[in-house]
Every structure is written in structure tokens, then in C-alpha cells.
Nucleic acid binder design. Structure first.
Length: 603
RNA sequence: GGGGCUGUAGCUCAGCCGGAUAGAGCGACGGUUUCCUAAACCGUAGGUCGUGGGUUCGAGUCCCGCCAGCCCCGCCA
């Protein structure tokens, strides 16, 4: 309903201008009607709060001001076409209720629109979403869960809005740990370096542990490892081959997780930026930002002071001449913002990492700005998220105290979903194929993990609980999936939902729609909020706003389903209600799809 | 020591640009099934929005102080 809201805003501004020309002139800008969605259903669709702040400057009671605005609105025929008579309430709120014909027209427009009323942006600069970013040769664990799920969701929303999104996996594929890994590989599996094809190195985690154990105990191994790092950085072909093997092995293991979660990513690891690191330091030096301190190349940050009150440095070149993560992050920003062919030409950079890195990114962003790499309207945003905690409120661990592997976490979610389903099948005396059970359990399990993560505000820590996320009622994935299943049930029992199944939207004339029940109107009003919610997520990068909306929509739909018959209704109510069912299903499917959650026909 | 995030019902959490009597869910208690999947729906109870000031027509929301928890603070990412 963004279009309607915009029209109302314009009409309200004009009305205020007509009612208080001198105040408008004094303000220099049009008076703000403070149009907002109604805070409660009984207040209508929108409320304009703009009369209240005018009370003091105008020296009039706010209700009188509201009255003057309402009188001007009444003189505007365009307003009369959209809204019923405005109501002045409380201290001076103007409550606006849309005409039923207007709501029906909006519903009809969405029924004929595959995008459900969400506008598509015209081609703009690409958006980079940097997320997931596991470390090569290590296993993906619960620490990667949130970045991966939240990042994917934000990428989906931006893509749906029509942005050209670069989903970048900034994997940790460079660094000193490769010295020991390559040394170990050369000694344990030299044959892997001879054959042309990548050899299965088996369990990489065990391999990493072995290498680490040797590194900690064996001095000779340590020195060989250090030499190996130098060789690798110097471009030694054999070292590079070993490095490539390790990366390829890791890549395959990561891909298994990404496939299960249905996540698409372009790998562009830290190593990609190696050729650009020296240029970063050179550029900082040329711009007079680089300061040598204790032998390290630093940029001192403005507005951030350390223990002794001196500015805090961002180290971009170590005293041994090597570069570190700050250098890589700066190189990445520079490359991503630089126009092709020198870079990605992005207009917005989004970093989905844990909140603990906030200070690091603030520093890096500041240096990038001062270096002049952030030009024009380019935006760089850190999208922080809190820790995943266990039900005890502490960092999530296994019973043995180890880090939880992502694979195990996903397995358990699916297993629990499956046993829930089997128990219910027995209770309800239903019989289903094994393939059906497996499919439902997998879908529900993955959906539960994703939804639980996305539905909480990402900034706060997130308490992980299989029991809560898989609960069949409440703000959970199963509850939302069930709403979709109920609609599919109506279709199976003879309800023609129109083009939904074939994907081709079927046009419905607004005049053919006829609604009478409050539950229908409540559902309509909820359905029409989609475009505003998507716009909000695109701007604020908060997936939980979309989750809340889908949950509320499901609740409103379930009320409608429970209290208003569809198939047994007489025409034209029956067709009208079927149209609402179809739009509800399409909206839920679209919204869940943007969360990375596929829906089911039966469950 | 400096900086950041968090603190809202028994539990888990929403709360948009400051707007009307602070909302959900779970749990608790009570009810609803001749009818499209009851994985649902309806109702009841439950609050000093950590705390003390300030700003203003109006503060959970903005500003300052304090308390508590977590995180970060020179060559790891």
C-alpha cells in the first residue's frame, strides 16, 4: 500500500499548506503530516499526527488544527476517492480509513501481479553482500550459522527488489596456518601433489588437528612450516598446488552445507586481494594517512582513543612488512567500490559478521572514507549480529563442551522434525510414503533453524532451542508452513485458486470482489502491507521485520480460515474468499522464499 | 582505563520517524471439532519498560549520570 500512502501524504501536505499557509512559509518546507500506519485496527488504516506539534507554534488547540486540516482534505476530491470521512481522535490525531472499493482495487491489482505489488528498482550499481566466510581447512560450525542465514536472506530481499547482488564468500584462505597445513600435507600425503586430480584428503578437521598438534610439539616442524609460509607467499608452484588442494577439499565440504541450506555464494577469499595489498598501503601513504609506529604501518583513527588517551591505530602493515586482515578488508572495500574493470563498481557494501567485529569495521570504514575510496552515494554497512547461545544463556556448546558442528546441528533439526512427524502420523492414524516423510522432515527442520534465527532481532544474542524452533504453534516455521498447507488443502478440496499453481497470475476485476466479514477485511489489510515491509527490510536490513509480518499474516489468515467458510460459501463470496486464499498463499510463499524457506503442499 | 552492544510479563522476544490504554508467542488457567488438516481458533491472568535525572504538548523510544551482563581495545580474523 505504499502507493496509497504516498498519495495520502501528498494530499495531506497540500491540505496543511492550504490550512496554514503562513506557518508553511515560516517553516520553509512543507509541514509534515506525520503519516503512519494506524497503531490499532479500530483507528482505521492510517493516522496523521502532524497536527500535534503545530499546537505551540500556531497557538491553537491541536484538535482545532486537525479540524482545519480535515476541512481542507474534504475539499480534495482525490482524497474523497481514497478515504472515508476522517476522524479526529484523542489529543488531535487524524484517523484515516480507506474506502472498501480502494482496498478491493488494491487486492485486484495484486492478484494480477507476480510481484504482488512490490516495485522493482531500476538498474542501479551492484550491492555486495559479504557473508558466511568460513575458514579453509576448518569445519563450518555454529558460529557461521547466523552470518550464512541472515546474509542469504538479505541477498534474497535485495535481489527480489531488482538489485544486482554479489554474494561474496570472503573465506579465510590465506594466512600463517597454511604453513603447517602444507608441511603436514607434503609429509603425510605427498602423492596428492603428484596426481592431476584433487585427491580426497579425508576428514580435514582431523587433518588440521594433526597438523596443529605437530606444530605445537615439534620444533623442526615449526620452522619448516614458517619456511613454507614464505614459499607460499613467494608463489612456489608446489606450495601453491598444496594450498589449492586444501582449498578445494574445504570447498567441497562447505558446499554440502550450502546445498542443504539452499544457499548460493560466490567464493572470493582473502587470497583474491593479495595483489592489491601493497597498493592499499601505498595509497594510504600517498594520502598522508600512514604513520610508522613501533615499526608498524598505522593509520590513527579519529574519535577513537586507546588506554593512554592517544588515538587508536589501525595497523595495515606489520613491523615485519607483512599485511594483516585490516589491509585485506581495506583492499576489498577499494576493489568492490572501484568502477569496472578495476573493481566491482558496487554502490552498497553489506558485511554480515558478528557484533564483536563492530569496532574493527568502524575503523576500517573510517580509513576507507578518509582515503577517498567511498565516493558519491556509496554506502558501507556492517550488519552485526549477536552470539548463538544455548538454553543456559552461555555460548552454545555440545555436552562434551566442544563447538557445535553446523552439520550436526542441521542433522538434529531434521531428526527431531522427523520423529515429531512420525508421532503425529501414528496419533492421527495417517499413513505416508517414506519419501514424503523425508521431504517434510527436511523442509521443516531446515525451515525451523532458519526461521528461529531470522525471527529474532539480529543485534541481540540469540538463544538456540530445538524445542522452541520446532514447536508447532507460536512464531515458528511450522506454524507458517501450516498456514500454506491449509490453503493448499482448500485447493485440493475443489477450490479453484486461479493462476497460482501455474505461476501465471490470473486477473480478477475489483468489481467481482465482494467482502462482508471483518475477518476478510483484516486479512486484506494485512496482505496489502507486503510492499512496505519489503522496503523496510531492504533499508534496515532486519529480517525479523519480515518474519513478524509473515507471522501476523498467518495468524490473521488462520482466524479467517477458522471463522469464515470458503468452499461452502455462496457466490460471489466464495470466489472472493478463494481469491484471498490465493493471495495469502502467494504472499506467504514469496515471503518465506525471501527468508530462504520453501513451502509444502501437505505436512 | 576507553569504546560498543544489551537490560521490556515467569520464559523467549517484538516495539518503525518520539504519538492514543506498552504488544506477541510459549508456559499457566478456562473454552471451541456434524464443516476446507484442531500443527488451529476464542477467552482469562500476568508490566515500577534496569535505575535516577533531563528535553517536550507527549518518552520503552532522544540526551546525561549510575547499576548489571556480554563483547572489543597494536602487529589473529
Amino acid at each position: 500500500m505504499l502507493r496509497v500512502a504516498q498519495a495520502l501524504d501528498t494530499q495531506l501536505r497540500a491540505a496543511m499548506q492550504r490550512a496554514f499557509p503562513e506557518a508553511t512559509a515560516a517553516a520553509g518546507t512543507p509541514l509534515d503530516p506525520q503519516l503512519a500506519p494506524a497503531s490499532k485496527p479500530e483507528f482505521g488504516d492510517f493516522q496523521a499526527n502532524g497536527a500535534l506539534p503545530l499546537a505551540k507554534p500556531l497557538g491553537q488547540p491541536p484538535r482545532q488544527i486537525a479540524q482545519a486540516i480535515v476541512e481542507q482534505l474534504a475539499a480534495d476530491p482525490a482524497f474523497g476517492e481514497l478515504c472515508l470521512e476522517p476522524v479526529i481522535a484523542g489529543p488531535g490525531f487524524i484517523n484515516l480509513t480507506l474506502r472498501p472499493e480502494c482496498l478491493c482495487a488494491e487486492v485486484a491489482a495484486r492478484l494480477g501481479d507476480a510481484r504482488l505489488g512490490v516495485p522493482s528498482v531500476s538498474a542501479a550499481a551492484p550491492v555486495v553482500v559479504d557473508f558466511s566466510s568460513p575458514n579453509i581447512a576448518k569445519e563450518m560450525h555454529v558460529g557461521h550459522l547466523r552470518s550464512t542465514i541472515i546474509g542469504d536472506c538479505l541477498a534474497r530481499v535485495l535481489e527480489f527488489r531488482g538489485h544486482d547482488v554479489l554474494r561474496l564468500n570472503h573465506v579465510g584462505d590465506w594466512g600463517t596456518q597454511f604453513g603447517m597445513l602444507i608441511t603436514h600435507l607434503k609429509q603425510v600425503a605427498p602423492e596428492a601433489l603428484q596426481t592431476a586430480d584433487a585427491v580426497d584428503l579425508g576428514d580435514l578437521v582431523t587433518f588440521y588437528r594433526q597438523a596443529k598438534a605437530r606444530f605445537d610439539e615439534d620444533e623442526a616442524f615449526q620452522s619448516t612450516s614458517r619456511e613454507e609460509v614464505v614459499k607460499l607467499q613467494g608463489g612456489d608452484p608446489l606450495s601453491l598446488k598444496a594450498w589449492g588442494l586444501l582449498c578445494e577439499q574445504s570447498r567441497r565440504e562447505f558446499q554440502r552445507i550450502y546445498d542443504r541450506l539452499d544457499i548460493r555464494l560466490s567464493e572470493r577469499g582473502e587470497s583474491f586481494y593479495n595483489p592489491y595489498l601493497q597498493g592499499v598501503v601505498d595509497d594510504l601513504k600517498a594520502r598522508g594517512l600512514l604513520v610508522l609506529d613501533d615499526g608498524a604501518g598505522c593509520v590513527f583513527l579519529e574519535g577513537v582513543s586507546g588506554k593512554d588517551g592517544k588515538p587508536l591505530p589501525l595497523i595495515v602493515q606489520k613491523s615485519d612488512g607483512g599485511f594483516n586482515y585490516a589491509t585485506t578488508d581495506l583492499a576489498a572495500i577499494r576493489y568492490r567500490l572501484a568502477l569496472p574493470p578495476a573493481g566491482d563498481g558496487a554502490g552498497r557494501l553489506i558485511y554480515v559478521t558478528d557484533a564483536g567485529q563492530a569496532a574493527h569495521f568502524a575503523g576500517v570504514f573510517q580509513v576507507a572514507r578518509r582515503a577517498g575510496w567511498v565516493t558519491g552515494a556509496a554506502r558501507i554497512e556492517h550488519v552485526p549480529f549477536g552470539l548463538v547461545q544455548g538454553e543456559d544463556g552461555k555460548k552454545l556448546k555440545t555436552r562434551a563442551g566442544d563447538t557445535v558442528r553446523l552439520k550436526d546441528l542441521l542433522d538434529e533439526a531434521v531428526e527431531r522434525a522427523e520423529s515429531d512427524l512420525r508421532r503425529r502420523l501414528v496419533e492421527e492414524d495417517r499413513s505416508e510414503e517414506e519419501a514424503f516423510i523425508a521431504h517434510v522432515a527436511t523442509t521443516v527442520g531446515m525451515a525451523a533453524v532458519k526461521y528461529a534465527d531470522l525471527s529474532t532481532n539480529r543485534v541481540t544474542n540469540y538463544q538456540f532451542s530445538f524445542d522452541r524452533m520446532l514447536a508447532l504453534s507460536g512464531n515458528t516455521a511450522p506454524y507458517l508452513l501450516y498456514a500454506v498447507v491449509r490453503i493448499a488443502g482448500i485447493a485440493r478440496k475443489g477450490g479453484d485458486l486461479g493462476g497460482g499453481a501455474t505461476g501465471a497470475p490470473e486477473r480478477v476485476e475489483a468489481q467481482a470482489l465482494s467482502f462482508s466479514e471483518p475477518q476478510e477485511w483484516a486479512l486484506i489489510r494485512e496482505l496489502l502491507k507486503l510492499d512496505a515491509v519489503i522496503a523496510e527490510v531492504e533499508e534496515e536490513l532486519l529480517p525479523n521485520r519480515l518474519c513478524s509480518y509473515l507471522f501476523e499474516l498467518s495468524q490473521v489468515f488462520n482466524r479467517f480460515y477458522d471463522q469464515v467458510p470458503v468452499l461452502k460459501a455462496d457466490e460471489p463470496a466464495r470466489s472472493s474468499r478463494l481469491a484471498l486464499c490465493r493471495l495469502s498463499a502467494d504472499t506467504l510463499k514469496l515471503g518465506l522464499g525471501l527468508l530462504g524457506i520453501p513451502t509444502l503442499e501437505r505436512m
